[in-house]
Structures are given as C-alpha cells and as structure tokens.
Simulated assay, not measured.
Amino acid sequence: MKVTSISSDQDSIKLLQITDTHLFEPLDGSLLSVKTLDSFHAVVDAIVDSGASFDAMLSTGDISQDHSAISYQHFEQGIEKLELPCFWLPGNHDFKPSMNSVLPSTQIQQVEHVLLGEHWQMVLLDSQVVGVPHGFLTEQQLTLLDEKLAEYPERNTLVLLHHHPILVGSRWLDQHTLKEADSFWRVVEKHNNVKAVVCGHVHQDMNVMHKGVQVMSTPSTCVQFKPNCDDFSLDSLSPGWRELELHNDGSVSTEVKRLKPGSFQPDFNSAGY
C-alpha cells in the first residue's frame, strides 16, 4: 500500500536521510575497498542505538551498485529495524526494474508526492539519465514540481532528488551535476513555498542557501568524496547520515551524524570507480 501522507502530533516533522548505499548482490561486495553492506548495517545500527525517533526516512538514490534485484532486497531487509516508511528515488547507479522487484514493500514507498503533517509537503523528483552519471529533469518532472507547488501553496515544500542542483566546488563531481539546473530553479522561483532541497550523489555534507532555499547534500553510508578537489579524491571522514526537522514555520533544523572516526576507510590509492 502506498503511503502518500505522514501524520504527526508534534510541532514538527522529523526525517532521516540515508543515501548512496551502493549495495551489491554478494554480501562482501566492496566499493573502493569498503564493504558497502557492512557499512550500511553499521549506520542503521548506530541510528537505532541513538534512540532518535523519526516520522519517515528518505533514500536519495544510488541504493545499488550492481543493478541486482538482490541488492535492493539487502536494502529492504537492512532498514527493517528502523520501522519507518521509506521514500526512495533512483540515482545514476540504480536500475529501476530491479528497484521495482521489491515492491510492494511494507516499508519502501515509491511515490512522487507526500503530505507531511499539516504544514509541509514533499516532492520526489527522478533525475536519472540512464547510462550516464549526470542528472536531468524531464518536462514531466518539472511539470510535476510546478503543479504540486501550485496545488498546495500554503504548504512548505521539501524537494528530493539524487543529483546536486548547484555546484559543490569539486570539478570532477560538478561534471556530473544536474544538467540544465536553471530549468529547475525557474520553477522554484515561480513559487514561494520551496524551503529546502535535499540530494545525494556527491558523498559530501553540504548545507547552503541558494536563491533563498536551503540546499543540502549528505554523506554516503560507504565511501566519502573529499570536498573542493579538481580530481577524484577520497575523504577520510566516516560514513554518515542526515537528520532533519521540518518546523511549522517553514524553517529546517538539520544535523549530519557519522560513525566513529576511522570507520570503513577506503583505498586512498584509488583513481576512480
């Protein structure tokens, strides 16, 4: 059953973002020497152990690395203990037929629009371009955003997509940004209710204001990319996740949390992946 609304008796909506898990069919599948299923499980365990409560979780793409149906089953099984509805969307590494193979799911929701409490809505955009690392929003996706912003003008809006809609300052990553991002921002600027945009893809923590909108990217649950590098470069920071609190007044409180320092270090001699 699809979930298209999240109710809350609190003064805010609390969300958990997990992104870029890059899972494989083999249990010991590794990306740049990091066993991604192990690091994913470690992140989930750390969240459970923290005792934090959330209304829902977000998974912003690159769930799989090898396109296998079983990698998505690993994800579905891995989030069971969080006991949260999970809203996901595809990244450049994902394979939609395999994503669909786990649906319907008791937790995973594949929807484009969600009402969050009394004051917020969420629009999930598909920025995947099959076979290439960069992103693009079709006219259909832009129209979806435009229509939902117009339909619920009184609701503060959180937009989710995989690719970063602004440059992050790493030349090699910014080659693979959301192409023609100006089209996205023109839709946003037509309205006044987009408060925040959350993405994955860059394996980095970013939290900046752009055109009056809070734009955030989030660490991967596996390897991290070093900020502000022209060429491919890995960071020594540990896998992480983002916690968000959407307040009734339209403001967003957020914090990135990570596993303990030194966890799941990659092969720093790697020249790419």
Rank of each mutant, 00 (worst) to 15 (best):
D146E: 09
G135L: 04
Q128T: 00
Q204H: 03
A56L: 08
G78N: 07
S53R: 11
M122N: 03
L234T: 10
A56Y: 00
S263Q: 10
S50Q: 12
E139N: 05
V159L: 09
P104L: 02
N228M: 08
S8I: 10
L116K: 03
F264R: 13
Y273G: 07
Q224Y: 08
K260C: 03
L89N: 02
A52T: 09
C199Y: 00
S263I: 08
Q128C: 02
E189I: 08
D55P: 01
L246V: 11
L27H: 11
L58I: 11
F24A: 03
G169Q: 01
H93M: 14
E83H: 13
F95L: 04
E112A: 14
L149T: 04
V43S: 04
L144Y: 00
Q77F: 15
S101V: 14
D146Q: 04
D9A: 09
Q265R: 13
R171E: 15
V132L: 12
H67E: 14
M57P: 08
K14T: 13
F75Q: 02
S101A: 15
D20M: 07
D182Y: 15
Q204K: 04
P239S: 11
D55E: 04
D9R: 10
V130P: 01
V44C: 14
C222E: 14
F264K: 13
E83S: 14
D174F: 05
F264W: 14
E147S: 07
L23Q: 02
T143D: 05
E151N: 12
Q107D: 13
D9Y: 05
V194K: 00
S251R: 13
Q17M: 11
V3E: 14
L116A: 04
P165W: 09
H201L: 02
K226W: 02
K35A: 11
N192S: 14
A56W: 01
Q109P: 02
D267N: 13
M1W: 05
P85I: 09
L27C: 07
S251F: 03
G61W: 00
C86A: 15
V215I: 12
F40W: 07
S251V: 04
L246N: 07
E25D: 10
Q109D: 01
L244M: 11
T157Y: 02
L23W: 01
W241V: 15
G135R: 03
V215L: 08
Q141T: 08
V102H: 06
I70R: 13
K96L: 15
H41R: 04
D146V: 05
M57E: 12
D205S: 11
I18S: 01
I13R: 05
S50W: 11
D235V: 08
L23G: 00
S71N: 06
E147K: 09
T143E: 06
G131W: 02
N228Y: 08
I63A: 01
K257F: 13
V43K: 03
T221L: 05
Q110D: 13
T21K: 00
K81E: 14
G131A: 04
V168C: 13
S50E: 08
N269G: 10
D205R: 05
V34A: 08
V102E: 07
H134F: 05
V34W: 08
R242P: 00
P219Q: 02
D20L: 10
V130Y: 08
L173T: 01
